[in-house]
Amino acid sequence: MCLAIPGQIVELVPGGHLATVEVSKVRRTINVDLLEPTPEPGEWVLIHVGFAMSRISDAQAAEQLRLLAMLGEDAQAMEELEGYRFENG
């Protein structure tokens, strides 16, 4: 649960709160209420338990993906991302 998964914002879901992110070609919905200002499409964020918690650079996102792979947690991170089920609120 302390996994930090990098994701790139693809688009903001109308109505606020949520955004679509993509990582390794997988798209899922996450909550962006913990970031001010709201992240823009193209920006990378670190995701914890379905919430964007911090804004990161492209280079940091690549570094974080690599770190997850080296810690043997990349599959688990993708499983978590694919496991988010709250896309309709």
Binding site: G50, R85, F86
Partner: peptide
Amino acid sequence: MVYSPLDALK
């Protein structure tokens, strides 16, 4: 098992 508290709410 859930991956997010929002999943539990759902």
